[in-house]
């Protein structure tokens, strides 16, 4: 299993995990009902999305709580969480910029955008800024190739990126104008 160790060197992720909020639990219960009795495990991916949204990443504690909730082995949750690229099983910054690097985006300059963000935030792909605000990741095709270059941050798409737009975006996220 990829690096599941917890490095609590990033302020925001050091927060103790105390179980999920009432709203998240209510949502868990609702989603479970989308499936026939005995097939509730199908709810796992959506639960992991909700857990990640609430905690900021998928800590082992959060995954274990999902396992308890679904009454399945913890390994069943870990193996799913590590298969799907949207799940962060290591701590990440407050805002994760996931920039598409696939062909159609590359044709219209995604590599330059990735380099630009990297320079501007002074981090390499995969790293988090020292203040814990931003993580830069690259991802494969986001299904928005006609509006390339594209990045996604917490389910929000930011399309037709230019250097100016990147400047604005970073500013907007830093100052909280764009809420997560």
């Amino acid at each position: 299993m990829p690096n599941m160790k917890r490095e609590n060197n990033i302020a925001q992720t050091a927060a103790e995990f105390n179980g999920f909020s009432k709203e998240t639990i209510a949502k868990f219960n609702e989603i479970k009902n989308h499936f026939p009795t005995g097939k509730e495990k199908s709810a796992i991916i959506r639960m992991l999305h909700l857990a990640q949204t609430e905690v900021g990443w998928l800590s082992t504690e959060a995954m274990d709580a999902v396992a308890t909730f679904l009454n399945i082995q913890t390994i069943e949750v870990y193996e799913v969480a590590t298969f799907y690229t949207m799940f962060h099983v290591n701590p990440v910054g407050k805002h994760v910029f996931e920039v598409c690097r696939t062909g159609p985006c590359m044709l219209v300059g995604s590599d330059q955008i990735i380099d630009y963000i990297s320079e501007k935030l002074n981090i390499k792909v995969g790293e988090t800024t020292a203040d814990g605000e931003f993580t830069l990741k690259t991802v494969e095709c986001l299904g928005a190739c006609g509006y390339a270059p594209v990045l996604q941050c917490k389910y929000k798409f930011h399309e037709n990126l230019t250097k100016d737009k990147v400047d604005e975006l970073i500013e907007a996220y830093r100052s909280g104008i764009i809420e997560n």
């Binding site: 499936f35 991916i45 690229t85 799940f87």
Partner: peptide, 25 residues
């Protein structure tokens, strides 16, 4: 009902999709 994936191209392949829909890799 609507069920989300978690970021994996292979889940577009119909049997991988069904595995994923069952809550697996």
């Amino acid at each position: 009902f609507v069920v989300p994936g978690g970021g994996a191209y292979i889940c577009g392949e119909e049997t991988a999709l069904l595995e994923s829909l069952e809550g697996k890799r």
